[in-house]
């Protein structure tokens, strides 16, 4: 009951912030901008010109999985930046403005407070991802070739886990720092370090969350769910759950306010 009230409060707040409008729109833009511009690359280069007569330019034909990879590439870079910046102040901002004190003087459990925020963020991010990839899937079918709807659902599900980890990281750092800038900085730093470690120790860390995109691509190529993908998914869920538990503990202990 209490959890539902907190969750509702989060939803209303992100609606009033217009987050429910601009986050999905930006994610859709990011998801389709690369496939479209790559599709029109020959025309763009032709109109810009500058090549002597008789120059033959070869443009690769993209297969549907490559188009999906373009979308995921943008979502993994700019998309993550948008999510981190959009959510960096979710707890730290409330601490600064005193809203969290107003809430927590009442008998509100810290667990409910954190998980309500986490769920609200996750719903927003997942809905945005779903819409973005849906539009991208539509374009892929028009411009590059068939991609089954099941494949689309699998992409959204497995890539959604990666976004879940990002959201959990943001919540975790929110309980550590009062400054929203620090939250954003450390979240992005953590993601970068994770990706560097995965690249260096790639042969042992096949199940690293950072490999989710690679495994998704492999799934599209072989039209079968590779075991590494399931492994990565499991690890991602486990890390997120652990981080969430840490966040609650951390938040409880620090609630001297």
């Amino acid at each position: 009951m209490q959890w539902r009230i907190l969750f509702k409060k989060e939803m209303i707040e992100s609606w009033r912030n217009k987050k429910w409008v601009w986050v999905p729109l930006v994610i859709i833009l990011l998801a389709i901008i690369d496939p479209i511009s790559n599709y029109y690359m020959p025309q763009i280069i032709e109109s810009v010109g500058g090549f002597p007569d008789g120059t033959v330019l070869e443009f690769p034909e993209f297969a549907p999985p490559e188009a999906v990879l373009m979308s995921l590439g943008q979502l993994s870079s700019l998309g993550i930046l948008v999510i981190v910046f959009m959510s960096m102040g979710t707890i730290s901002g409330e601490r600064k403005s005193g809203v969290s004190e107003l809430i927590l003087v009442k008998p509100v459990s810290h667990f409910n407070y954190i998980t309500a925020k986490w769920t609200a963020l996750l719903v927003l991010v997942w809905v945005s991802l779903f819409l973005g990839m849906l539009v991208s899937w539509y374009y892929t079918n028009i411009l590059f070739g068939d991609l089954s709807f099941t494949a689309f659902l699998l992409i959204v599900f497995f890539y959604g886990l990666w976004y879940m980890l990002v959201v959990t990281l943001v919540i975790f750092y929110n309980t550590l720092f009062k400054n929203a800038g620090m939250v954003a900085f450390f979240t992005i730093l953590t993601i970068m370090i994770m990706s560097i470690i995965t690249q260096i120790f790639g042969h042992v860390l096949e199940w690293s969350p950072n490999n989710l995109t690679d495994h998704i691509l492999k799934m599209l190529m072989t039209e079968d769910i590779p075991s590494q993908l399931v492994g990565s998914a499991g690890i991602t869920i486990a890390i997120s759950a652990a981080l969430l538990v840490f966040s609650v503990i951390r938040f409880k202990n620090k609630a001297v306010l």
């Binding site: 729109l25 930006v26 833009l29 032709e46 109109s47």
Partner: peptide, 23 residues
Amino acid sequence: FLNEINWAIIAPLLIIQFILVVV
């Protein structure tokens, strides 16, 4: 170049940008 573009494909991009600016 402008004629070659299929506007049905580009239009959503422009519409999304427009909505973002208006909101």
